[in-house]
């Protein structure tokens, strides 16, 4: 789980081009949107692309997407549950 979260943070930084940020700057439970990293709705679509490309997980429902993408912790948990073998 820790490895997954670490990898996820690196992927988020790359996918959203969060210049100057390092994985350790992102707290597991900090909100990614709004006050947290200040990400917006297009970033959330980009994160869904990340999940689909790297983990084969497709989220169709926007509301479910918002829940899954609320923090690194919630993303990691969702990946563990749904990752294709």
């Amino acid at each position: 789980m820790e490895d997954l979260k670490q990898a996820l943070k690196q992927q988020i930084i790359e996918s959203l081009n969060l210049q100057g940020m390092k994985p350790e700057d992102i707290d597991d439970n900090a909100p990614l949107f709004g006050e947290g990293l200040g990400l917006d709705s297009i970033d959330s679509l980009e994160l869904m692309v990340l999940l689909e490309r790297n983990y084969g997980i497709k989220i169709e429902d926007a509301r479910e997407g918002r829940k899954v993408l609320s923090s690194v912790q919630s993303m990691a948990e969702y990946i563990q549950e749904h990752k294709k073998a």
Partner: peptide, 10 residues
């Protein structure tokens, strides 16, 4: 036609 970045389209 799968998992495409919306940013490039926009």
């Amino acid at each position: 036609e799968e998992a495409l970045n919306p940013t490039f389209f926009i």
